[in-house]
């Protein structure tokens, strides 16, 4: 399973390194969301700083769906998905590889947007370790749920619409926990141990569940 995962991950990373489609799309989109927030809400008022973590994750939730949509659309278009499902490998390995690739794309997007975000919203990161953990756990949560639903939505006529419709409501707990932990990292709240725990629980539950059900999604 792990070997399959590494092969799939390496394949997706190589495609991304050559095209830079997923990360650049997510990047431009998150910057756009931040700019639009600025016009819609006049974010430079001091009280807005407390809400900064929320703006950040909203931008990611939507930018994430963009790059997640591509994840399986790519396989469908070239017929590679059929080849993958015919290959005598563990479907869980395919899921793990794709999910890891998506988690990396999300994390890279976050790291690039972070400095812009700090500049635009005038926030300061007071707990760097908390921010790193929040980003890592949040990316895993979005990647696990998003990869599963992206694989499901890729089977439909309305892929672009169905991915967010399925993915966003289910990831509500992860989204709340991600916002709260980031908020803690920015020094807006005093403790966030519950939210870190919830994110870990969400990650464990959804990674496990996705690994178990992915064989049904992958069959043709």
């Amino acid at each position: 399973m792990l070997r399959t995962a590494v092969v799939v991950l390496w394949k997706d990373l190589r495609i991304e390194l050559r095209t830079r489609d997923a990360v650049s799309a997510a990047l431009v989109f998150s910057i756009l969301v931040l700019v639009i927030f600025n016009f819609a809400l006049d974010v430079n008022r001091p009280e807005m700083r407390r809400l900064a973590a929320g703006f950040f994750w909203v931008a990611f939730a939507f930018a994430g769906t963009l790059s997640l949509n591509r994840s399986f659309a790519l396989e469908k278009e070239s017929g590679a998905g059929r080849a993958l499902s015919l290959a005598p490998v563990d479907p869980a390995g395919i899921f793990l590889g794709k999910a890891l690739a998506n988690a990396i794309f999300l994390a890279v997007t976050q790291l690039v947007v972070l400095p812009l975000f700090v500049i635009f919203f005038d926030v300061s990161v007071t707990r760097l370790w908390a921010l790193a953990v929040s980003f890592a756990l949040g990316s895993i949560a979005f990647a696990a749920t998003g990869t599963l639903f992206s694989a499901i939505a890729a089977n439909t006529r309305m892929r672009e619409l169905l991915l967010p419709v399925l993915f966003l409501p289910v990831s509500v707990p992860a989204l709340i926990a991600a916002v709260e932990t980031t908020s803690f990292a920015l020094g807006n709240t005093e403790s966030a141990s519950f939210w870190f725990t919830l994110l870990v629980v969400y990650d464990v539950v959804f990674v496990t569940a996705s690994l178990l059900v992915f064989e049904y999604v992958a069959e043709e």
């Binding site: 499901i152 309305m158 419709v165 707990p173 629980v201 059900v213 069959e219």
Partner: peptide
């Protein structure tokens, strides 16, 4: 909505079942 957009009855049933299971697992977390 997902069910509406999948043509093959077997695929529809399988994929919907996956959503039916994962959606419910999510309830306590939500």
């Amino acid at each position: 909505m997902l069910r509406r957009y999948i043509e093959s009855p077997e695929r529809r049933a399988v994929l919907a079942a996956v959503v039916g299971v994962t959606g419910f697992i999510d309830v306590p977390l939500v």
